[in-house]
Design a protein around this nucleic acid. Structure first.
Lengths: 76, 76
DNA sequence: ATGTAGACTCAAGTCGACC
DNA sequence: TGGTCGACTTGAGTCTACA
């Protein structure tokens, strides 16, 4: 559907995925803790969705990490 | 409309506002640089809108600050 | 220069199903 | 367990206008 995958979103998604995996959580478990849908978490991890800040904060809290571990700023 | 103003969104909005002001930018100028609408920037500053991560990144870049200056994490 | 309001569009986010 | 699809609802984001 969305071939229009943004680089930043892909990075964020990859970070969420590896953090989730390192916690031994399934997408379903993370979705449940965060109160989002399982298919949506999947889409975010694949960088297909431009997540809102409040939901991103919920995810980072569920993963018990700081924002800088999910969104890594580069010098520009 | 939205009496349901979230504390985190209000904080983010306040931070954006004071950062914008310290740059001597109007909402209109910031909106133009970021490619968002002036009325929307206003709503974000008032904490009325749950902005998406990509737009938040655009704003922080336009203000030339790091994410941690806009979204301040508290220990929990 | 900003707040608010209303009407609008389209993407965020839900949900159930199947592979 | 995770990807994808389709139909759906809600809310992000636009735009014009007026105070």
């Amino acid at each position: 559907m969305n071939t229009n995958k943004n680089k930043t979103l892909i990075e964020i998604g990859n970070n969420i995925r590896s953090l989730r995996l390192s916690r031994n959580l399934s997408q379903e478990q993370l979705a449940f803790e965060v109160g989002l849908h399982r298919t949506y978490i999947g889409a975010v991890e694949r960088g297909e969705k431009n997540i809102t800040i409040l939901n991103l904060i919920k995810i980072k809290n569920a993963l018990n990490v700081s924002m800088s571990q999910i969104y890594i700023e580069r010098e520009e």
